[in-house]
Design a protein around this nucleic acid. Structure first.
Lengths: 229, 229
DNA sequence: TAGATTGTTAATCGATTAACAATC
DNA sequence: TAGATTGTTAATCGATTAACAATC
């Protein structure tokens, strides 16, 4: 309500925001009207204190004694995430990853509208992937001049990714989601998110291995304790 | 060297580990022999202090006055991540996401070997996706009994995901990477990573929007300053 | 009103950074 | 040896949690 001027949100908080949104969307669909921070905390395995703290960083959307109105809260967080309006996106690179993302249903459900796919492969250019035309990447700048686009998803080979940044930025793209295996950099007016799919698998094996080691240590310790009379 | 008994690593540190590994792999390929925490820090936009702190949580792999041996450090971090050995993986669900992950080259390069794909669609069962057979999901338990598997990647519709956990755990799977649109839970002996692709897009629009708002506030402030005589 | 629950400040906890003795 | 750089402890910073007055 208070419409605070927020500082830049921490990464930790930013990561929680979409989870709040999903949870509230689900609860709204289930017919929930009001919800306390305590209830939400239980569902999301967080503390109620953290939830109130997070929401209050943006001004506070609750009513003392009553809790939060689910629909209002969902809309407010949607505003903060800027997903209460549609976003036009394009995909560059129609290989495995690009094609899969193009066919992915979840984006459209959240208001991300795929408008075009770009590639260099003459066999793909002119064809459609899930109803969206594949265009020649040489026409990218011309396309962006005509069709303002919020977000570009880069799914090209690693060595082609960085070169795309300049035309994208010049064309007015404000966010880049990069799946190419090499981190790209962009001027500060553009947000870049570099994704490394194998990193996630490595984090999984790291935790799997860590658990093994910790359990091994635990049993050493108990063996040690047992060996003492 | 000291082979410390580590605590559970924080999420923040865990996220840095694969990035260290990639960086060191690249530097090793480029022929680097020694590397100081300062050099690595510059390359990765971290502080040297944090890097030494991170490495020392696992025992310390450097030599005072000389820095770190790149090959040794890469191998040590590989050990910590447990990626110096191959891992067998299976994919369950051969839709868009499952198929794309099956065709993704990056996994094999990091020692993640796709051994089987499971689906319910009779048209897919028996066919191959990038050289790997699609099996009937009803044979999953039988398969796991014969072929011990480290990691399962779930790419099924949301309502099918949770039911897979029991057979996977019973079959000895130690890690689950879940792309289904609903969070799954598993007993504590198994590591689960729930991925939400749209969350990443929302974080992008969040930062894009935040930047807009912050800049708007900045110009209000400067307008305010200017308006004062 | 009494009970509930927020908004918000203070206390705590944990992660990052700084500093420097150890040592190559 | 002198210079460099780690390993490690202490200081700082920031995020999370606790507490409670405000108020529905």
């Amino acid at each position: 309500m208070t419409n605070k001027i927020p500082d830049r949100a921490s990464d930790a908080m930013m990561r929680r925001m979409p989870a709040y949104y999903r949870q509230l969307r689900d609860l709204e669909a289930l017919g929930f009207i009001d919800l306390s921070s305590k209830d939400l905390a239980r569902r999301m395995h967080l503390t109620d204190s953290q939830i109130r703290h997070d929401f209050n960083a943006f001004g506070g959307f609750g009513r003392r004694g009553r809790g939060y109105n689910v629909a209002l809260l969902r809309r407010s967080i949607g505003d903060i995430l800027d997903i209460n309006r549609p976003h036009d996106i394009i995909i560059i690179g129609a290989g495995n990853v690009g094609k899969a993302l193009a066919q992915y249903k979840g984006f459209a459900e959240s208001g991300f509208q795929l408008k075009a796919i770009f590639d260099t492969n003459p066999e793909l250019i002119g064809k459609k992937i899930s109803g969206v035309k594949v265009l020649n990447v040489t026409t990218l700048s011309k396309y962006l001049a005509k069709a303002p686009t919020d977000i570009a998803i880069i799914c090209t080979p690693a060595d082609k990714a960085q070169a795309l940044v300049a035309p994208l930025v010049a064309g007015g793209v404000k966010g880049i989601w990069n799946f190419a295996a090499l981190d790209i950099t962009a001027p500060p007016e553009v947000i870049v998110s570099n994704v490394h799919l194998t990193d996630s698998l490595m984090m999984l094996t790291f935790r799997m291995h860590e658990k093994e080691v910790l359990e091994q240590n635990k049993s050493w310790v108990s063996a040690d304790v047992e060996s003492k009379p």
